[in-house]
Simulated assay, not measured.
Amino acid sequence: MPSPTGRAVIALGNAAWVGAAYTQIVELRLIAIMCALTVLLAIPWLLIPMRVRAALMLRPLRAVAGERVEISLTATNKGRLSLWQPLVRMPVGDRDTWLRMPTLPPGEQGSHELAVDDLERGVLDVGPATAVRSDPLGLLRRTVRWCEPAELYVRPKMAMLSTLGSGQVQDLEGVPSDRMSMSDLAFHALREYVPGDDLRHVHWRSSARAGELLVRQYHDTRRNHATVVLDPRPTSYRTDDEYELAVSIAASLILCAAREEYDVSLVSGTEAVVGLPGGAALDGTCRVQRQPGADPLAPAINRAVTLVPETSLLFVVTGAGAEDLEDVPAGLVAVPAETRCIVLRAALREASSMVRQRGHDLGTVGSLPELSGLLVASS
């Protein structure tokens, strides 16, 4: 592939050849021949094989927006000829970075370290690393892919929360509810056998004394489950920074829920991460984007409850531009009575506050560090 310099030489040669054909000026024909020979002599440089085995290493694999990420490219020359300081293109998201690798003799290994910072939230492709082979004059160049790209998860900035303000009892084996179950952990009572009951639950000693089959009955138990609904509508946010604040609020809630050993779910428009560990839900916050035409708050809450019916703590995160906050109670109709709902508005530079409304708490978050105090006040 010709470089800008190569295209200029080719254009000059063509122009000189055409000029010589019309004017019969020998010097123009000589210029055209020299340009053609220069380009032809550059071709063998591109035909030299470049056999390289390379690997990318990211430290850390998951970063927070603004953090420093170190990228290491290690390459081993598998060819028979030395590679003299190959130039390697290394994309990081939308930005291109160029690396000058050390000279690689046959069979030798070399590496190059690169540090990047000021990365924005998202899932960024690092690589692929492609080496540029060129002739000494830089007229022609050929790219050779050394390795496949790696994914870098850049999570939003998060606040360390001391509590979710839920008042829930932490219990790794679940908290007993009022519902009955035939297979669970919390024993409730014995009852008469009904055709179709599992014989494994028959209590034979009590059955022998009573003269009829009796089976065990249990309380239905469940683990605490926190679900975060993030409003993806562009009209709900006045600025890009306000949306990023909402994403940071959602990520902070997920991080705290995972630390308190909740099951965690994240729902934002078409993006849904349901019942996965906190780390996977945090990866979901890297992918979320604003979605024009997304559902209003009430249908979005209904959808989240349908996806995660076992929710014990529901957070709804929206922006200061949301105009349907009064519709939230309509979305909570399908929510179980024991499920607590907290609605948080991301409103940059507004005074933070927490008030109790119809069936839910409504908080205004003016900055991310104030989130922890709001949740403590809501406990």
Rank of each mutant, 00 (worst) to 15 (best):
V355P: 09
E148N: 15
P234R: 13
V39D: 01
V52E: 00
V154Y: 07
Y193H: 14
G373E: 03
H201P: 00
E67F: 04
T103F: 05
S183L: 08
V123D: 00
A281L: 04
S248H: 10
A251R: 07
R287V: 08
D263T: 14
P232C: 03
T270C: 07
G366E: 01
S82A: 13
Y153N: 12
V169K: 15
P128S: 11
V267I: 07
Y262V: 04
A337G: 06
H188T: 08
L199I: 12
D125N: 14
E310M: 12
S181C: 09
V333E: 02
L58E: 01
L348C: 08
P4D: 04
G93Y: 04
Y153G: 06
A304S: 08
L30D: 02
V69E: 04
N77Q: 08
K78A: 05
L344N: 09
A16F: 05
G275Y: 11
E244Q: 15
P128R: 15
M34N: 07
P128Q: 13
P128T: 13
N224V: 08
V264D: 01
D240Y: 14
R340Y: 00
A300N: 02
G366S: 07
R59P: 03
A320R: 14
L28Q: 03
L213I: 04
V308L: 01
L40Q: 12
P156L: 13
M50K: 11
E70W: 11
R59L: 06
S268W: 08
H112R: 15
T239H: 11
L375E: 01
T38C: 11
L30Y: 10
G6F: 02
P86W: 06
V376H: 10
R287D: 00
Q357N: 12
P299T: 12
A54T: 11
A250F: 01
L56D: 00
V92H: 08
D295Q: 14
T5C: 07
G110E: 01
D198N: 15
S183I: 00
E338A: 14
A15N: 05
R233K: 13
P4Q: 09
L185T: 13
A320C: 03
A377P: 03
R223N: 02
S372K: 12
L83H: 05
